[in-house]
C-alpha cells in the first residue's frame, strides 16, 4: 500500500478534551488531513461533538456544524443542495457521526440521504456503543458484549443480538463507494478518505475506533486492539466499489481471543462463547473471500466484454 501524499496541515486541532487513547480523536486527525481544508464537517450529537466543540472553544479548523443526534445526514444533504444551488462545485460535505447516530437513531434519515444520492461523504466512526452517555448498547455493539444496557447477569450474559451489518446495508443502496477502515490503519484510512472525497455523489466509510472506557482497555493499547480487530478478521478492511467488493488486507488469521482478551466488555465470555464467536468470524471471513472472488471475476468479465 502506498502511503498517501498529505500536504495538508492539521485541520483537527489539539486541545480538545477526548480521553487519553481515544481512538476517535486519532481517527479524526487522519481523516481531516486526508480531506483537506475545502471541507464542511457535519457531526451528530455524541462524544466528538462534546470533546471538540464546548463553547467558546473548537478543535475544528474547517467549517463545522452540529444540530441534533439523528439528523447529520439530512443536514449534510441540505448543505450539499445549498452549495449546488449557489454554484459551489468544489467544497466536500462530510458527515462524521458515531454508530449510535448511524446504526440506530439516524438510520432512516441516513438511508434517505443515500437513496436520493446527495453528494455527501458519510463517515461512521464505530466504537460499538453509546459511549457519550456512558456505554449503552447500540445496533453496532457486538454479540455478547457487556454495556450498561446489555449487562451480564445470572440469566442473560451481555448483548443478545448480533451487530447490524451496516456496511452491507449501505452498499445495498447502490452507493458507489463503500469501505471499512480503522483509526490504526491510517494509510488505509487516508487513502479511502481521499478516494471517497473524489466521488461525485454519496460515499460511505465505516471506521472502527476504540473507546478506552467503553471497551475497558488501556490507553496505550488503543491502536493495538484495532490492529488485532483486523488481524483476527473481526473487522475486515474492504472496499465495495460500484457493488464489487475487494478486501484491502488479507492478514494471516490470529485467533479471536487475541482481540477479545483484556477488553472488559468481553471478560465474562466463556471458552464456549469464544469458540462460537470464532466460528462466526471464520464464516464471515470465508463469505467475504468468496464474495471478493465472485465480484472481481464478474468485474473482470464485464471489463473484458466492454
Amino acid at each position: 500500500m502506498v502511503k498517501p501524499e498529505l500536504e495538508n496541515k492539521e485541520l483537527f486541532k489539539s486541545g480538545h478534551t477526548a480521553c487519553a487513547g481515544c481512538g476517535v480523536a486519532v481517527g479524526l486527525r487522519h481523516i481531516m488531513r486526508a480531506l483537506g481544508k475545502d471541507t464542511i464537517v457535519v457531526n451528530a450529537t455524541g462524544c466528538t461533538e462534546i470533546f471538540t466543540s464546548a463553547y467558546p472553544k473548537s478543535a475544528w479548523a474547517v467549517p463545522y456544524i452540529h444540530c441534533v443526534f439523528e439528523n447529520s445526514a439530512p443536514v449534510a444533504a441540505g448543505i450539499s443542495e445549498a452549495l449546488r444551488a449557489m454554484g459551489n462545485d468544489h467544497t466536500k460535505v462530510v458527515v462524521i457521526s458515531g454508530d449510535g447516530a448511524s446504526y440506530d437513531i439516524g438510520f432512516g434519515h441516513m438511508s434517505g440521504m443515500f437513496e436520493r444520492g446527495h453528494d455527501v461523504l458519510y463517515i461512521c466512526y464505530d466504537n460499538e456503543a453509546y459511549m457519550n452517555t456512558g456505554v449503552q448498547r447500540s445496533g453496532a455493539t457486538p454479540w455478547k458484549a457487556h454495556t450498561t444496557t446489555s449487562q451480564v447477569g445470572k440469566q442473560i450474559r451481555g448483548k443478545m443480538q448480533f451487530k447490524k451489518p451496516l456496511t452491507e446495508i449501505v452498499a445495498a443502496h447502490n452507493v458507489p463507494y463503500v469501505a471499512t477502515s480503522t483509526s490504526a490503519h491510517y494509510a488505509d484510512l487516508q487513502q479511502k478518505v481521499q478516494k471517497a472525497k473524489e466521488i461525485k455523489g454519496p460515499s460511505f466509510l465505516n471506521v472502527l475506533m476504540t473507546c478506552v472506557p467503553g471497551w475497558g482497555t488501556t490507553p496505550s493499547l488503543s491502536m493495538q486492539y484495532l490492529k488485532d480487530a483486523v488481524d483476527t478478521h473481526v473487522w475486515p478492511l474492504m472496499e465495495i466499489e460500484n457493488g464489487f467488493s475487494k478486501l484491502s488486507m488479507k492478514p494471516e488469521k490470529k485467533p479471536v481471543e487475541a482481540y477479545l482478551k483484556g477488553q472488559k466488555r468481553f471478560r465474562h465470555l466463556t471458552e464456549e462463547d469464544i469458540a462460537e464467536i470464532q466460528e462466526m468470524i471464520d464464516e464471515r471471513w470465508d463469505h467475504w473471500v468468496w464474495k471478493e472472488k465472485v465480484d472481481q471475476e464478474r468485474k473482470a468479465g464485464l471489463e473484458a466484454s466492454e
Binding site: 439528523n71 439530512p74 443536514v75 441540505g78 448543505i79 434519515h109 434517505g112 440521504m113
Partner: peptide, 13 residues
C-alpha cells in the same frame, strides 16, 4: 424531520 434538517444545513451554508 429530514425536511427541516435539510433547511438547517442549507441556511447554515
Amino acid at each position: 424531520f429530514s425536511a427541516i434538517s435539510m433547511l438547517v444545513g442549507a441556511s447554515a451554508a
